[in-house]
């Protein structure tokens, strides 16, 4: 317990130090990675800890993104309340999707989430006059202020991303060490047994979907605020596949894994895109290799071999 808290606080401290030493390009990347790692941590609650594989998480990310963006655009809200709207949108969506999709299991669950997500993407396209479809819209720099701080300023943006990331990181750590988190893991390992022990597994699964969807939505809303762009491409299939990939690479069911996976994959794609435009090829190859040779991901391997205490 001590070690795990030290490790995660250490990571946050390291990220604070990096703010002052990273060159501009990597500094910007790291802010983006922290937001995306938050998305991955949200995904991990459902997939890594509860064992529910969703292929449609882009809809939750997009719900946060558009819930925030449309509130700014059409209700004239500041980014603070608009962030709340994003959270509310993704919470509502994840509740509805959870209630429906949890009636199915395994492969059917994966396909149902994929289809709901596709529906959300098409709805965004359909309401083109408001959402501007594929083209998307920009959150004006003049709006991107909170408590008098300019969120488009690189340093402030970095710290805003860090606050989001740290909150979710520590939150996830607390969650998986709590009783609820342990029931999630019990469901992942053996749902009938968890049920037999008297746990209401259905309620716990629903809670897991809602938590996961809302954290993903928070990442989406923050992405829109910090980087100033809202677009339909974030609702498309690749953005459902990315968190799966990040979590698998870093280690499903580890608190720190999603961050490691996002960091690795981000720079892998960054490096390969200097060589070829077809950077999604790297995504494909890594996915296949992971399923074949490293089911537990990087941190999963570390946990197996050296550090059994990793949460």
């Amino acid at each position: 317990m001590r070690k795990s808290i030290a490790l995660h606080l250490g990571l946050i401290a390291l990220l604070i130090v990096l703010q002052f030493v990273l060159p501009a390009y990597h500094h910007g990347n790291m802010a983006r990675i922290m937001v995306m790692a938050t998305y991955a941590m949200g995904y991990n609650i459902m997939f890594g800890y509860t064992g529910l594989l969703s292929l449609g998480h882009a809809m939750f990310f997009a719900a946060g993104l558009y819930g925030m963006g449309l509130s700014v655009q059409f209700l004239g809200m500041g980014v603070g309340p608009a962030f709340g709207m994003g959270l509310f949108a993704s919470l509502t969506l994840s509740l509805v999707v959870g209630l429906l999709a949890l009636r199915t299991l395994g492969v059917a669950f994966m396909i149902v989430t994929l289809m709901f997500s596709q529906t959300i993407f098409l709805v965004i396209l359909y309401f083109n006059p408001y959402t501007r479809g594929d083209e998307g819209f920009v959150i004006q720099q003049s709006v991107r202020h909170i408590f008098g701080l300019d969120l488009s300023d690189p340093t402030i943006r970095y710290f805003a991303a860090l606050v989001l990331f740290s909150t979710v990181l520590i939150g996830t750590l607390k969650l998986v060490q709590s009783n609820i988190g342990r029931v999630f893991i019990a469901i992942r390992e053996n749902e009938p047994r968890a049920k037999m022990l008297g746990y209401d597994t259905w309620r716990h699964k629903l809670l897991s979907v809602v938590l996961s969807g809302t954290v993903s939505g928070a990442a989406g809303a923050s992405y829109g605020i910090l980087f100033g762009y809202v677009g339909a491409s974030f609702a498309q299939v690749p953005y459902s596949i990315f968190p799966l990939l990040w979590v698998l690479l870093g280690g499903a069911g580890t608190v720190i894994g999603p961050f490691i996976g996002t960091l690795f994959m981000f720079y892998l794609i960054d490096l390969s895109s200097t060589v070829t435009d077809a950077y999604m090829l790297v995504v494909g190859v890594v996915l296949v290799l992971l399923t074949m040779f490293a089911r537990n991901g990087l941190i999963g391997i570390v946990r197996e071999r050296w550090a059994k205490w990793l949460p």
């Binding site: 594989l53 292929l55 395994g106 492969v107 994966m110 596949i241 799966l244 698998l248 070829t276 435009d277 077809a278 950077y279 999604m280 090829l281 995504v283 494909g284 190859v285 890594v286 996915l287 296949v288 290799l289 992971l290 399923t291 074949m292 089911r295």
Partner: peptide, 25 residues
């Protein structure tokens, strides 16, 4: 991967991108 249903889906997603991007190249 022993035709494990969930891992097969992840692996075939990987194949999807490999085939698509190699065709693009």
């Amino acid at each position: 991967i022993d035709y494990d249903p969930e891992r097969t889906i992840v692996a075939t997603i990987g194949l999807l991108y490999i085939i698509q991007q190699v065709t693009l190249m």
